[in-house]
Design a protein around this nucleic acid. Structure first.
Lengths: 214, 214
DNA sequence: ACCTGAACACCGTTCAAGT
DNA sequence: ACCTGAACACCGTTCAAGT
């Protein structure tokens, strides 16, 4: 599984062939079938192996906000370091078990803070969704490697083709020569957690009897 | 391109072979190479074709908040209706041109509301990231089809294997028999936009001279 | 239980050849 | 410019056979 992840890291997921893994670990392609049923099972194993690297423990036992922030940031950084692993995330095979304890602790802290269990679940899902989505969106906008300059050039070209139509993009493209997606992530996760903390009205679960003054 | 999207819709992206498309459109596999250079170009074309279906116009000319909410919701719904198209999103080939006008309008409205151009860019990226991430995360947690019950069973089994360790998950699993990811999306996008609206301090861009009272 | 080697059906793509 | 058909290298997987 480590060999497969390393091969994917170097040459993308399409470079992960049974023959490539076999020669890497010094075996025959068919010998691998002892350890997983088929290629889908291989992908699932790779995904769990990759997610096990997400650092959750360090932020534990603090506020749910710090925990969610740290977890989202860790997922973001991991997938950014290994962009070729991204397609593995889409492989639908249930939640990775390594996150269970962390998940439970976040829920506990949020319930202590007055959230309902369902709200806590939604908050957890939102934070993780934003984390994986940030990687996905960055990859889509930026492409692989250091093509930021190329993207900006493309953007400028598109804008130049229809003068006057995309004024804001034009001024943005001329101002920014290096766009760091870190800023997007930072604003996004902090805004999301701030919004969650503001606690939306929950009429069904807990009808507001008293109105707290701000 | 439509044929390819339809085939992917039915049988997943791995069912999209040049030979399958060829027989579908009534041609020879090699005839397709007139219309795209290789399979990566095919994927890029499919992605742009898919994204063109995102409905952006209806929410235009209103507040940036309504626009971002509608766009994120539309992306979420589109990818949910066509979960097999999801891997196309990860194909890194720059922003789809269909979103440019919408993008520009959001920027304009946000700048009018006092945001900097960079902040507006971050807000746009955050909302879109959350949208695609929600689909991705839902697919990862739920798997394909109506396997929610199976997932919950799996969750209960995992929890039962370590009694007392995952109390919150346990109570959650016993309470919820049908988990709708719509709630996660709703809470997430509203929290995110609420957080953005709250406008974080921007020391670099606009040093706060006067402190506004809450 | 674990490994091997030959074989099969299928894939993207090249090439020479046609209109 | 657009299409064809044969061929090539490669893929996941099956199968019969070994330890």
């Amino acid at each position: 599984m480590d060999s497969a992840l390393a091969i994917a890291d170097r040459g993308g997921l399409e470079a992960v062939t049974l023959r490539a893994i076999a020669t890497d670990v010094g075996a025959t392609p068919m010998a691998l079938y002892t350890y997983f049923a088929d290629k889908d099972a291989l992908y699932e194993g790779m995904r769990d192996r990759a997610f096990a690297r997400v650092k959750l423990a360090s932020a534990a036992r603090r506020s749910w906000r710090v925990m969610l922030d740290a977890a989202a940031r860790s997922v973001f950084q991991l997938m950014r370091e290994h962009p070729n692993w991204m397609p593995l995330v889409a492989h639908q095979s249930g939640p990775p078990t390594s996150a269970l304890a962390f998940f439970d602790e976040v829920l506990e802290l949020m319930v202590k803070d007055g959230f309902s269990l369902e709200e806590a679940l939604c908050a957890y899902g939102s934070a993780m969704s934003f984390a994986v989505g940030s990687v996905l969106f960055e990859q889509m906008m930026m492409g692989g490697g250091d093509v930021i300059a190329r993207r900006l050039a493309l953007l400028k070209e598109l804008v130049a083709r229809a003068p006057g139509r995309y004024d804001n993009i034009a001024s943005l493209a001329s101002k920014i020569d290096r766009w760091s997606f870190d800023d997007v992530f930072d604003l996004g996760i902090s805004s999301l957690l701030k919004g969650i903390e503001a606690r939306p009205v929950r009429p069904r679960l807990r009808p507001a009897r008293s109105l707290r003054a701000r």
